[in-house]
Design a protein around this nucleic acid. Sequence first.
DNA 1: ATCACTTCTTAACCAAAGTCAATGAATCGG
DNA 2: CCGATTCATTGACTTTGGTTAAGAAGTGAT
Lengths: 208, 208
Amino acid sequence: MNGAPDTAWAKSPRQRSPESEIIRYVSRFMELSEAEAKVILESIHIRTFKKGDILLREGQVSNLCYFNMKGCVRQYYLIDGEERTTNFYTEGQPISPNEGTFKKKPSKFYLSCVEDCILSVGTPEDELRFFQKHPQFEMVCRIAVEDELGKSQHDFAAFMLSSPEERYMNLLKSRPELIERVPQYQLASYLGIKPESLSRIRKRIMLR
Amino acid sequence: MNGAPDTAWAKSPRQRSPESEIIRYVSRFMELSEAEAKVILESIHIRTFKKGDILLREGQVSNLCYFNMKGCVRQYYLIDGEERTTNFYTEGQPISPNEGTFKKKPSKFYLSCVEDCILSVGTPEDELRFFQKHPQFEMVCRIAVEDELGKSQHDFAAFMLSSPEERYMNLLKSRPELIERVPQYQLASYLGIKPESLSRIRKRIMLR
DNA sequence: ATCACTTCTTAACCAAAGTCAATGAATCGG
DNA sequence: CCGATTCATTGACTTTGGTTAAGAAGTGAT
């Protein structure tokens, strides 16, 4: 990891600097001046986590917001003693521990680190202070959330509309690195099937 | 429909006045004064649609935003000539024709009215003007979108984590009126199954 | 190097949804 | 009121994933 800020946008996610991820993200929604980039990086709180660390447990009430700068965070539900994975958050993805209720409710799911992670962590107070000081970001944030909402709806539709085998093929296309980074039994549950079935699907595909 | 504004919050969705839906919605996120409620109702554009009207077609680029004040709108994809339903929007639900890309792209899905509808329709320009004139709503809107995002993620997880039969039971609990309002072959596709399978599931349930 | 543990694969059997086809039931237009 | 069309149900058969159980391959610790 070199010391100079990394602006080499062409690099793969694993090679980019953690800081550049958040700047890249905001830049998708607005022209960002050097000064503004600096403001953002000075405002965020960065924390590191170890593989296996749990960010959020079932039943816990949290109003934190995360942004993944490096590593991989898994979201899962514990149902009849079985972990059912519903999402993987990798570099450049925001993570919200809130499941839709405006009033904070106890979480129904877990968030845990699949790898060592570097995350930016924000409280509602951080957020409020930041928007009051830099009101131009309030709209950007709204638009970013709208974008996340659209993505979530897209992913939902893609899941509904495809078979487990198609879902595996789609994942292979859209996030090939994920398949390397994550154990297969977690992938299986993310695809909505059992590990045995994923094995069979992989075999079926190989034979063609 | 009586002339006076309807504030009877205990009424069922089908009985409430269309206007009250949007006020109810905003009130979930902030204390709303009489004056503010008036401002909102004066700012929105209301349009009526007939059963079968199509709000959005595949391939069409739209940047409109809808809010359902009365009726039922169905979202579906056309795959191999088959309509695959991914959502039903009823009274009190916002509808965004944008599938996650910040830059507007041609839609992959359709939006069509299952019933006669009364919708509020907003353009980005409407929105911008409204927020400039009434900046206190910018944050409310962001929070509302965050809430929608959470809901979408919740629904996604609920779908992933349950079998078709469980999904039908959940729907029966969470939106029983929908089952009356919508033809079964559309419900089936919304549950991710074929109409024949929904028939069998209903039969299975009856026999217990 | 060995043992324990986790992960992945394979196989046999079961349950549930898909497919195809036929028949009722309900709805709509004339 | 009738015929046409659409929608819902049922049955026979296929396909796919779940279940259970076993073993192989990889990983880590002592």
